[in-house]
Simulated assay, not measured.
Amino acid sequence: MEEQGIVTTYEEMAKVVDRLGILPLAQLIPGHPSVNGLTKAENWHTGSELDPWSWRARFPGEGLAGYGKFIRKKAVLVSRDWFPAFVRAVGSSMELEERYKNGLTSREAVVLLQIIRSNEGIETRELRSLAQMKAKEQKTAFDNALNELQGTADIMISGVKARLNADGEVNGWNSTSFETTSHWLQENDLHRFEGSREEASGWLHKAMDNAWATEAKAWISKVLSI
């Protein structure tokens, strides 16, 4: 299913994402394509229009796909048509604060989510600062909390922002920015999936039937418990 260099442009990749519904950035799902596997290695990190690394920010920015470390802490694109059902299937029916009271999530995750809710699209450096987690020894807890929130589809990567110095000049690598999935859905005229988690899982399975290999469906069903 995976042929190196078969996809060259962002528009071609958008069609692949739309057809498959879920597409990881790197190889992750057995018997299933990835952005890395479908594109030419020489186009990565070139900064050109053909650079697949830059596409990851365009998809959520243009409302074509949700993007985040949704599966096993790995970056994945989920098409806009699949995203409401995906969020319902992998997310929790309880608010994060309730999960925390029940010992099901970390304090750091609660702190970060509350900040992101109040600052949709916040970039990583500012988020660490507002969370008072700038110390080097706090980085692991910070990263774990971000991965936790993406794994339960509470938040997603909304894009990347250029780091600027005090004079407003670009300084250093671009920084990842985050927003809540509910905000992205609203901003892109998408509605929450109204059914139960089981119904959302059933919706996804039906959508996979025509485009996914049996091996891939079995793997994701087990990993996501859907």
Rank of each mutant, 00 (worst) to 15 (best):
Trp184Cys: 04
Trp184Arg: 08
Trp184Val: 02
Trp184Leu: 04
Leu185Glu: 04
Leu185His: 09
Leu185Ser: 05
Leu185Tyr: 06
Leu185Gly: 07
Gln186Phe: 07
Gln186Trp: 07
Gln186Asn: 13
Glu187Ile: 03
Glu187Val: 07
Glu187Thr: 11
Glu187Leu: 14
Asn188Cys: 14
Asn188Lys: 15
Asn188Leu: 15
Asn188Ala: 14
Asp189Leu: 13
Asp189Lys: 14
Asp189Ala: 15
Asp189Cys: 13
Leu190Ala: 13
Leu190Glu: 11
His191Ile: 10
Arg192Met: 03
Arg192Ala: 11
Phe193Leu: 06
Phe193His: 13
Glu194Gly: 15
Glu194His: 13
Gly195Ser: 06
Gly195His: 07
Ser196Tyr: 10
Ser196Cys: 05
Ser196Arg: 09
Arg197Met: 01
Arg197Asp: 02
Arg197Glu: 05
Arg197Pro: 11
Arg197Cys: 00
Glu198Gly: 06
Glu198Leu: 07
Glu198Lys: 12
Glu199Phe: 05
Glu199Val: 03
Glu199Ile: 03
Glu199Asn: 02
Glu199Leu: 03
Glu199His: 03
Ala200Trp: 12
Ala200Val: 09
Ala200Ile: 10
Ala200Arg: 06
Ala200Phe: 11
Ser201Asp: 06
Ser201His: 10
Ser201Ala: 12
Gly202Asn: 08
Gly202Gln: 02
Gly202Arg: 02
Gly202Cys: 01
Gly202Lys: 00
Gly202Pro: 00
Trp203Thr: 05
Trp203Phe: 15
Trp203His: 09
Trp203Leu: 01
Trp203Asn: 01
Trp203Asp: 02
Leu204His: 05
Leu204Val: 06
His205Leu: 11
His205Ala: 01
His205Gly: 00
His205Gln: 03
Lys206His: 02
Ala207Val: 00
Ala207Cys: 01
Ala207Gly: 00
Ala207His: 07
Ala207Arg: 13
Met208Ser: 02
Met208Gly: 00
Met208His: 05
Met208Val: 00
Met208Asn: 00
Asp209Cys: 04
Asp209Lys: 10
Asn210Ser: 11
Asn210His: 04
Asn210Asp: 10
Ala211Trp: 10
Ala211His: 11
Ala211Phe: 12
Trp212Ala: 08
Ala213Leu: 13
Ala213Glu: 15
Thr214Asn: 07
Thr214Ile: 13
Thr214Leu: 11
Thr214Asp: 14
Thr214Gln: 12
Thr214Cys: 04
Glu215Thr: 06
Glu215Lys: 03
Glu215Trp: 03
Ala216Gln: 06
Ala216Trp: 09
Lys217His: 01
Lys217Val: 11
Lys217Pro: 00
Lys217Glu: 10
